[in-house]
Write a protein that binds this DNA or RNA. Structure first.
Lengths: 153, 153
DNA sequence: TCTAAAGTGTAGCCTGTGCTACAAATCCAT
DNA sequence: ATGGATTTGTAGCACAGGCTACACTTTAGA
């Protein structure tokens, strides 16, 4: 095994992460958070289209518990980011990128909920907490969750 | 002109939460997120004071990876919320409420990291993801995590 | 000591995400 | 077919949380 110098993830003797490491972690958490809302919208729009044939701003707003104005403003951001399209008064649609994001989030959500249930979290808390947790689960962590679930069925 | 198909609110049997339930979940996730930054600051300030005797805005900023101006602005918010006090050019201190919050977050962080490690998440990913996840772990979920860790040592 | 570097604080700007209020478009029932 | 209800869209506000730029205080070294 090659000797290793300090690198990402190293904590010092007191258990505290090194300064640049911690800064990077917080930065990534901020980035994850910045995308959380778009992920929620994409997933919800996909669900609405799948179950009802269309996704209307008012439906989206009701589901998310925000005003329709807020929903419309965020839909505009989805469009700017290339995740959705919308024709005035005719509903919202996902682009390929938006659809892919929605499917990723849907799978992620299910795995997170299943993992929480598996370790003994009550169902209601699992659903609630997964809503916030899923946006912070990296691919590595998701893979570990999936492996854990597969290993102990 | 597409005929109107299903109306809003027609939640089906396909496993989707009812509309008010989902709205409440999203709302709680938003609330949790709104407190996340204050929690991070409180925990970090407690760590800095514990290990270095004082918490300076510039140190806080470096640790979090933001500009010192941003840190100072957030410290002002901590003061408004009754979590911290500060004397100009003399560092930041936690109130009792702030100290209690910091200790809660510290314990929460450790349990989340341990849980992630226990289910097989790589150490680096566990530390990174815990930074975002910990703010969305409810008391019920935290208790379940602790029980899981205690049950299978 | 006294000046330069470092740290601290303030001001002003941007974006994101929420809101209410109002205007325009669409839908539906009479 | 048309008018009222609903939906959609727009405008404007607030606040959080980023930033840079600049001014002031403290600290430390020559």
């Amino acid at each position: 095994m090659a000797p290793r110098t300090a690198q990402a993830g190293d904590d010092d003797a007191s258990g505290m992460p090194t300064e640049p490491t911690q800064a990077r972690r917080f930065g990534k958490a901020r980035t994850a958070q910045a995308h959380a809302l778009l992920e929620d919208y994409a997933e919800l729009i996909a669900d609405l289209i799948a179950t009802g044939g269309e996704a209307r701003p008012t439906d989206i707003a009701r589901r998310l518990g925000v005003s329709h104005a807020t929903a419309i403003k965020t839909i505009a951001r989805l469009k700017r980011e290339g995740l959705a399209t919308a024709r005035p008064y005719r509903g919202v649609f996902l682009t390929e990128a938006g659809e892919a994001l929605a499917q990723r989030m849907k799978a992620r959500h299910r795995i997170v909920v299943d993992l929480l249930l598996r370790v003994g979290v009550p169902a209601e808390a699992a659903e609630q907490d997964a809503e916030g947790i899923e946006h912070h689960v990296s691919d590595a962590t998701l893979a570990a969750f999936a492996a854990f679930l597969a290993a102990k069925p």
